[in-house]
Design a protein around this nucleic acid. Sequence first.
DNA 1: CAGCCGCATCGAACCGGTTCGAAAGGAGGG
DNA 2: CCCTCCTTTCGAACCGGTTCGATGCGGCTG
Lengths: 331, 331
Amino acid sequence: MTTIRDIARKAQVSVSTVSLALNDADRVRPETRLRVLEVMRKLDYRPSRSARSLSSGLTYSIHLLDPLGGQALTSGFLTRFVRGLHDSAKERSYTVAFSIVADDGEAATHTETLISERWTDGIVLLNPSDNSALLELMAQRSFPYVVLGRDPRGRGLSVDNDNRQVGFDAARHLIDAGRTSLAFINGARVQTFARDRAEGFLAAIEEAAAEAGVEGEVYFNEGTPEVAAQLALEAREAGANGLLAASDPQAVSALRALTAAGVRVPHDIALMGMNNDAIGEYVDPPLTSMDLSAYELGREAASLLLDRVEDPLLPAERRLVPHSIAIRESA
Amino acid sequence: MTTIRDIARKAQVSVSTVSLALNDADRVRPETRLRVLEVMRKLDYRPSRSARSLSSGLTYSIHLLDPLGGQALTSGFLTRFVRGLHDSAKERSYTVAFSIVADDGEAATHTETLISERWTDGIVLLNPSDNSALLELMAQRSFPYVVLGRDPRGRGLSVDNDNRQVGFDAARHLIDAGRTSLAFINGARVQTFARDRAEGFLAAIEEAAAEAGVEGEVYFNEGTPEVAAQLALEAREAGANGLLAASDPQAVSALRALTAAGVRVPHDIALMGMNNDAIGEYVDPPLTSMDLSAYELGREAASLLLDRVEDPLLPAERRLVPHSIAIRESA
DNA sequence: CAGCCGCATCGAACCGGTTCGAAAGGAGGG
DNA sequence: CCCTCCTTTCGAACCGGTTCGATGCGGCTG
């Protein structure tokens, strides 16, 4: 293994000059710098990451914390979010590591370890619940982190969709398609984003209630496809002709239950999913779905976080990523 | 930040004793050890990871390399594999990091960096192609790594399914259901596992050809759902009444195309997918699918790899993880 | 020409652990 | 009672970088 001292010897300069040549180009004479770099090339020198970490206090990595408990993330969403996170981090020469934790408690103790043992430079939290012990912890320690979703205290960094608008736009799309009795098979009520979406959904209905006589209902639930199937039938029973599900697996499950019950989609009832999973394109009928820009959320998360890692004085920020509607045949 | 020297001072022992007390329990008197640990607890001491890495030469992390180019992995598979990898690594106190690379060339240069800059203790490679420059590289450097799939040289560690058997069992399942004309919408021919599955698939047909007059064909292709839809129709045209797709998205896409063409599944043609993605349960009809035990593959990969990290003298090994058939209504 | 400044470079300390060889002390054997 | 060996502990070197303060040198200013 060739070290910085080997380079120094061979290039006839001091160790500190080598380090400077590598990291702080304009503090060393160009001529010297080139000579040093040439020697590095010749000896195929690679600075050791752990040595660099130890002395600089940086790990050049960020850490994603995935609370398995938080059901919120369908795998399609997570995959794309992670990819965005990775791509953005990679552009800035950071590595991404991750941990999957069972619940908020484990998340908190694990985070404590991440921070105090200096494993990482910044932490990405996925959709923590409102009363998260973890968020409490993060608010106290001053360590760079970003939240996907909403940080209730509003003190930290976060990336998110405008979830009220997501709900609003979805309802609006159904209404524009002539649907008058809407149902929203939503996530759990404890999830902030689910409440926000419900609010927007109902607001759109309210707005259209007068002129078009539109009405609607929100069903909070645990988010499983099984529950969605049952609720879809229930909603249909109650006269719904426009249906929004909180995820694509839920929508697909609802689709099957409705079809099996002889209800035609979209003829009898329009159906929308959420997050535009790849699979939605191939079911029959293809699924209209809210596209939450998971990849872009991931990119923004890494970008915001790394800005703070590199300059801790930057103010907190909440960045909203635009969503869109992937319109297909189901609605 | 409290360091090992703070502990030493407070506990009235030397720095080396503190280190020993922490890492090599039985080389220090129990009494002393307890005193040291007590001081640690009191001062909430946490050893710095980078310091430990630098002096021990270990990073306590493994690195997953995901070649985006290798289309082989549907996101459902990858998610579960990664989860297995993580869980197994976590049990042994290792962290998992990952990189997504565009192609084999980038994989090779990136791996070079991972190894020579000491980022990680071991590398996990996903389904490299047969002629991978990366595998060439790994074979030369002696650095712990494990391959998901087959290492053509057979020299390295690998975890895999018995892909020949996967193909065989799938065909057998269709034959047992009374299907006589089979088709396999397979992956690309350059992928070893695709060839292995094709071989098994055809072997099962061969075996049943005499008694039951079974015949069949394998369609190698790029693995997109679009292509699957087209090939499904083609196969049906040619008289197929039993169909196996290389992934669940492909199967779902085929299902839709067939249904749209008035072909009833499974009445007219039985349909099987692969990898048992969650979504298969909710389409209509629910999808029978080969379950490749992605989670278990991930667990085994980490387990084998870490065994070698901790004892480099262990011999190479190829571990096959059993598959199963998730039987639902489509076949 | 003396004084000052800034640039390029250097040596040494430092980051916080691990580990090696030596030393101290006590037990056991001859 | 002395020698040896084993156990426990210690000091110091080491891992491979970064960074701070000092130094030497040349050029500019007054």
